[in-house]
Simulated scan of single mutants.
Amino acid sequence: MTSGAQPTRRRLEPAERKAEILAVARRLFGAGSYASVSTSDIAAAAGVARPLINHYFGGKRELYLEVVRQMVIVPAPVVEALPDEPMERRLEIGIERWIEVVERNRDAWLTAIGPEAAGRDPEIERILLEADEIAADRVLAAALMTGVTEGREPLRAMIRSYGGMVRAASREWLVRGTLDRAQLRTFLVESILGLLKLTYPAVLAETNGARTRPGSSRSTV
């Protein structure tokens, strides 16, 4: 894969240089594939020596995994920066910001969640599982529900399932074109609000009802 003219090297702090290499890798992997992009391509496009990539990331494989992790894991500052408003508004803002990130990094996002990434690769699978766990925490924080204890694990399971739906919906928007941006936003906002305000209470009621039904092993005497 060719990467065009090599950019002029600039003196950067290590953290800035690492972030720049990641940004270049995100763009190149998004435009091509893991197999078609080499560390030489990334080094040339980033204006660094190839050994520097190994120094920061360990190699192409580790750099690719970091790109996937960066794309699918919701960073804590996204939630921490939400305004002090009702949960409905906080979730709307959070989802809008997520859509903006995916829109800016369309190709990299599709690469991160696409068949090549999720093709039964144990390390990618672990990253996606980690992303779902972190996303559940972020959603609870955005919804001001971090203190929920009753039915917490079923609630987290439902939010993790919502995360899978989010990835599928993003493909409908970006690949199939069956949802436009506004429709996607409404779908995701209303779905998570329905989950938290209607589905979760219904699951709690079902669970509590099962505990008191005649013949239940949990029924009270």
Rank of each mutant, 00 (worst) to 15 (best):
E123G: 06
E80D: 15
A117L: 05
P77F: 09
E96C: 09
A76L: 13
E103S: 14
E88A: 07
A112H: 08
A108C: 11
I95D: 00
V102S: 04
R106I: 05
L82H: 01
I113C: 05
I95T: 04
A76V: 12
A81E: 14
R106L: 06
R89F: 03
G114P: 03
P77R: 09
V79W: 09
G119C: 06
P122F: 03
L110F: 13
G94K: 07
P75G: 13
P75K: 08
L110C: 08
V78Q: 14
E96P: 04
W109Y: 15
V101T: 10
I93G: 01
R90C: 01
R90Q: 03
W109I: 04
R120H: 14
W109G: 04
G119F: 07
T111L: 14
W98C: 08
W98M: 13
E96Q: 14
L91Q: 00
M87W: 00
V102N: 04
I95E: 01
A117Q: 10
L91T: 00
P86H: 05
P122R: 13
E85P: 00
V74Y: 11
V79Q: 07
E123C: 03
A81N: 13
E116L: 09
P122T: 10
I95P: 02
E123T: 12
I113G: 01
V79L: 11
R104G: 12
A118M: 14
P77L: 11
P115R: 11
M87N: 00
E88H: 04
E116W: 08
I95F: 03
W109E: 10
R89I: 06
E103H: 14
P122K: 09
V102K: 10
E116D: 15
P75R: 10
L110N: 07
P77G: 11
A81T: 09
L91D: 00
A117G: 06
R97P: 02
D84Q: 12
W109Q: 06
E123D: 15
E88R: 04
E123Y: 10
T111W: 14
G94F: 14
W98T: 09
R89E: 13
V78K: 08
E92C: 02
P83G: 06
E116N: 06
D121F: 12
R97H: 12
R90E: 00
I113D: 01
A118V: 11
E123S: 13
R89L: 09
A108Y: 05
G119H: 07
G94D: 03
G119P: 02
V79D: 06
T111M: 15
G94R: 09
A118S: 14
A108P: 07
N105E: 15
A112P: 04
A112N: 08
A112L: 06
I93Y: 01
A76R: 12
V102W: 13
E103N: 07
I113V: 15
I95M: 06
W109V: 05
E100N: 12
I95Q: 01
A117M: 10
R106Q: 12
P77W: 10
G94Y: 08
R90M: 00
R89V: 09
W98H: 11
T111Y: 15
E116P: 02
W98V: 09
V78Y: 08
E80K: 06
E92D: 15
P77K: 10
W98P: 03
P122L: 10
E80W: 05
P86Q: 06
R90W: 00
A81W: 06
V102C: 08
E100H: 12
A108R: 03
P77A: 13
M87S: 07
R89N: 10
R97N: 14
P83I: 04
